[in-house]
Design a protein around this nucleic acid. Structure first.
Lengths: 151, 151
DNA sequence: GTAATTGCAAATACTTTGCCACGTA
DNA sequence: TACGTGGCAAAGTATTTGCAATTAC
């Protein structure tokens, strides 16, 4: 499986197009999974995605179906996992033009996608120089206690 | 003779002292686990720690023993887990005066502890202000391809 | 019609716990 | 002696796979 070209937009339609170009089929359940991912503003577990898709498709997709779909999308760099220090994996869409750093409340577990300019673009370049690494990417999560849980 | 903990150091002796102060017992196997952790320069899985301790203690500690020991240490903030995007957990000592950001090769999986000044201390403060979060900490990992794997 | 997809069940992987004999202080 | 520890086995949780029936194109 090769990596698909990324169009200049990132929507259900464009992602479906990428999947179709890979020879994959766009089924009702897959569309429901995509809709679930596009509507969420936080990373989701496979189970949460399954439940979200169930509401949209009317019928619950098998867990293995969700698992395989997300795996496919991960290999195509359409989603990525987020390290939330929990026992199960969390998935999030990978819009190539966006940044995915998070702020997590240690008490209520809410996850906020941080919308500030990447604080470590320079560091990445510096590391590439200093250690000779290529294709650098990063994973950055902040943990703390949110205002509601502080009060 | 009980040596007082020196807050300005982080050694097998000082960590053993902390454990002893908690009412825990310093056994041969625990010492072997500590030695293993202190000799490693990269995060380790429970299995790797178990194997390292086996070499030192002469006998292999049970997996559950290693698991419980690392759990205890984690609660005492003597070790922490590192998110390497792999299926098992990786543990690393938590010297309170050090910083633990990593550079990981996606091909050979080597892990390098980055010894640069923290690139996001300011960001942390900014987030605390902007979102009202408290007790901020972070987890930062860089992924790329190392020089050997590039060639 | 052909090949991809799905559900089901089973297998695997990793983590966690209960129990009791054992060792440390 | 008192209580923390360690080994064993089993349970728990999350992930992954095999296969036959089904569906998309």
């Amino acid at each position: 499986m090769h990596m698909a070209n990324q169009p200049s937009q990132f929507t259900i339609e464009s992602v479906s197009g990428i999947l179709r170009d890979e020879g994959l089929r766009i089924t009702r359940k897959r569309t429901a999974i995509l809709e679930t991912l596009f509507e969420s503003d936080a990373p989701m577990t496979l189970q949460e995605i399954q439940q979200g898709a169930a509401k949209r498709a009317g019928t619950t997709p098998d867990f293995a179906t969700v698992f395989r779909m997300l795996n496919l999308m991960e290999q195509l760099h359409l989603v990525h996992k987020v390290s939330l220090q929990r026992s199960s994996s969390y998935y999030e869409l990978s819009d190539p033009r966006k940044h995915y750093d998070h702020l997590v409340c240690k008490k209520c577990e809410q996850v906020i996608l941080i919308d500030i300019p990447c604080p470590i673009g320079d560091t990445e370049k510096r590391l590439a120089r200093q250690y000779g690494f290529r294709d650098l990417s990063h994973s950055l999560e902040f943990f703390g206690v949110c205002p509601a849980c502080t009060a």
